[in-house]
């Protein structure tokens, strides 16, 4: 069974993804998360049931309102500086495992496509790649911190 927190995570993850409807079924458990667009706002509905006949609908419709992130605007606030925004909700990790060196530190020169950090969501670790080459001037997250969708994680200075 899903815990309340897992359900919240699930709603959040779906909400911030491009997925509109997510259905999951395993061993007698059924979960349906659906975005319903209503008057310009998107809201969500989550359904959880033990068996197909016994489906309960927990409505979280009002609870979640999607915050539109204007990616283009925020990623080019400055010509010299580039902000790397989280493409998803997840827990921030600066290294691949506790004993490893961090992927980058302030001052690290990075290439386009280089791995900067990983974000963990639902036991999956997603590498976040740099979209530009340059130098890391600021790291805006700490290990273990929950990062929201669209939240800036790094500031990279354009060196050329």
């Amino acid at each position: 069974m899903l815990t309340l927190n897992q359900m919240k995570d699930l709603i959040k993850t779906v909400d911030q993804s491009s997925v509109d409807r997510f259905k999951f079924e395993a061993e007698g458990m059924k979960v349906l998360v659906e975005k319903i667009a209503a008057s310009g706002q998107s809201s969500e509905r989550i359904q959880v049931g033990e068996t197909p006949e016994n489906q309960e609908s927990i409505s979280a419709a009002a609870a979640v309102q999607k915050e539109k992130v204007d990616k283009e605007a925020s990623s080019s606030t400055d010509k010299e500086q580039h902000r790397v925004l989280a493409p998803m909700v997840g827990t921030y990790y600066s290294r691949s495992n506790p004993d490893a060196e961090p992927f980058v530190q302030v001052g690290t020169k990075v290439e386009e496509n280089q791995v900067l950090c990983v974000l963990e969501a639902m036991k999956l670790f997603n590498e976040i790649h740099s979209e530009v080459s340059g130098e890391i001037v600021e790291i805006l997250a700490e290990d273990g911190q929950l990062i929201e969708y669209g939240q800036p994680i790094f500031v990279i200075k354009n060196v050329d």
């Binding site: 699930l10 491009s18 997925v19 997510f22 999951f24 639902m122 036991k123 999956l124």
Partner: peptide, 16 residues
Amino acid sequence: QKMQQLKMGLQLKKHK
């Protein structure tokens, strides 16, 4: 339960 979360995470990935 962690395996279950992983399965769900992968399901979401597939959709994306």
